[in-house]
Amino acid sequence: MTADAVNPTETAIRERQVRRNWLLCVPALVLLVFAASGPLLIVLVYSFLEPGDYSGVIWKFSTEGWFQVVFSRDIFDETISLADAHLSIIWRSASLSLATTALTLLFGFPTAYFIATRPESHRAAWLFLITIPFWTNLLIRTFAIMEVVRNEGILNSALKGLGVIDEPIQLLYTETAVLIGMVYVYLPLMVLPLYAAMERLDFRLVEAAYDLYATRLRVLRRVIIPLVKPGIVAGSILVFVPSLGAYVTPRVLGGGKNMMLGNLIELQFGQGRNWPLGAALSLTLLVIVTVALLFYVRNVSRGSRYG
């Protein structure tokens, strides 16, 4: 060892620490390049190529894939019209994802509050219950929901048995069924970040607000919600983003009529044999997510300088 290493100065130690920290980053960086940026680049390139006859791509520049996202060309006279099917799928994806986010927030907020206000020793058990569904394969959980909502399923039988309805309500293969399924699947992703934020919440602040003449509803609006906002933002992102690209749930519960973006993309890479369109649709999804997130984060953080 050099004399410098035996008796290192403070800056030398710091420098070495910084170097070591960089080394620790390497696995994450490798993963980021090969698993995220690389594939994304391939998708971007493919979206500007021509489709091959039997799937795959032909290495020839074309903007047809992007064009087909929004427009359709008549095969006989080449007239251009809006691609209604695509647009309605994009619209359905966006609105169902928003509804899923809103409903998981509505159910998840009281749930997280309930858990966060239990005695510390009981909280782990409640969280455990929340995470149990993760142990089961998504497909199986979705089929379980199917069992609940189908015409002869638990829900309709119960309602019939109670005399609320005479004829079963057609839920399966509707957007409602997809929504129910997505809310069920994504609820834990809302509850966990909300709980994390509420657990950090200093409940003495709630007492202070009560003391200063705030009723329960106002305490919620003026103190609790602003303080757990980071959790609300995180939960919403965790639910909204995968909802937008959901594949299994709309496929099983929505049937063929209620396709979402995820299903449309799969179709292009599969039976559709139109990889450039699939790639362009994937990137469209990415753009929608990015825009929605930017809009949301900016809106939520405005009006409060906290968090």
């Binding site: 003495r204 602040l205 007492e207 202070a208 003391d211 200063l212 009723t215 103190v223």
Partner: peptide, 16 residues
Amino acid sequence: PYERPVNTVFQSYALF
């Protein structure tokens, strides 16, 4: 508490 014309200074201050 919110109906009592009494206010508290908390040990932890509990400022928002």
